[in-house]
């Protein structure tokens, strides 16, 4: 037995374990934070932040706590999300379509399975989205779509907002909530925000537009299935 504990193998295992524990302990200290030890570095040394390890079921459970504040009373007649329909499109079909459109997209697992696309041109418009994100549920069906534009002129932003509104109105009718206005004057004022919202028991479409200081108008569209 004594010989075993003195063996090179045993000392190696003990040494490795101790070193690992010390590293893990260190990265959770204030000193490590002050040294700007980034999550990338942590991932590189094999100590990924638990945030990236949460399961979609865990995230669903957490979201349930707040979704009641976002739900409307009735069920949605349909689940529009840009050119797609939530709860219908699946990952395979989506990837095929995105490839055909030649978008720069990448599949990732971030609790949910997501497809992230960068620099996506808006259909029939002269604007480009910083990012377009598709979130899939456990059955690989589309459960959320988000798109984010920045640095738009008020002219392009208003045109885009009207286009989004027309598309939603066609399928869902009158919005549940509207705040702000879509005029050049309104978007001239920094930090002015407008919201367009369609709230249902099982679906939320929310479009937020804000005039960011020195950065033009930003538009954040969210299409979410609320289960």
């Amino acid at each position: 037995m004594k010989e075993f504990f003195r063996s090179r193998f045993c000392r190696g295992v003990l040494g490795f374990t101790t070193a690992t524990l010390l590293i893990v302990a260190f990265v959770h200290t204030e000193i490590a934070k002050k040294l700007s030890l980034s999550p990338d570095v942590l991932a590189w040394i094999g100590v990924a932040c638990p945030a990236s390890l949460a399961t979609s079921a865990q995230v669903d459970e957490l979201r349930q706590e707040v979704l009641s504040d976002l739900r409307g009373k009735e069920k949605a007649p349909s689940y529009p999300a840009l050119d797609w329909s939530l709860n219908r499109a699946n990952e395979k079909g989506l990837l095929r379509q995105l490839r055909m459109k030649q978008f720069d997209c990448e599949g990732k697992i971030k609790s949910y399975r997501v497809i992230e696309c960068k620099r996506v041109p808006a259909k029939n418009e002269n604007i480009i989205a910083d990012k377009l994100i598709f979130v899939m549920d456990e059955d690989q069906k589309l459960m959320a779509v988000e798109v984010f534009y920045r640095q738009l002129s008020s002219q392009y932003a208003i045109r885009h907002l009207q286009k989004v509104f027309t598309a939603l109105k066609k399928q869902l009718g009158k919005p549940s909530y509207q705040m702000g206005s879509w005029t050049p004057d309104y978007f001239r004022k920094e930090m002015n925000s407008s919201i367009l919202e369609y709230k249902y028991q099982d679906y939320l479409a929310k479009v937020t537009a804000t005039r960011l200081p020195k950065k033009g108008v930003a538009i954040y569209e969210q299409y979410l299935l609320l289960r």
């Binding site: 995230v59 706590e65 707040v66």
Partner: peptide, 23 residues
């Protein structure tokens, strides 16, 4: 603010770790 952020499934995943060691 927290509700608005948690509504987003891609954001909410971070909050799952709240209460865990180191968070």
């Amino acid at each position: 603010s927290v509700v608005a952020l948690l509504a987003d499934p891609t954001v909410a995943s971070y909050y799952v770790v709240i209460g865990q060691s180191g968070h």
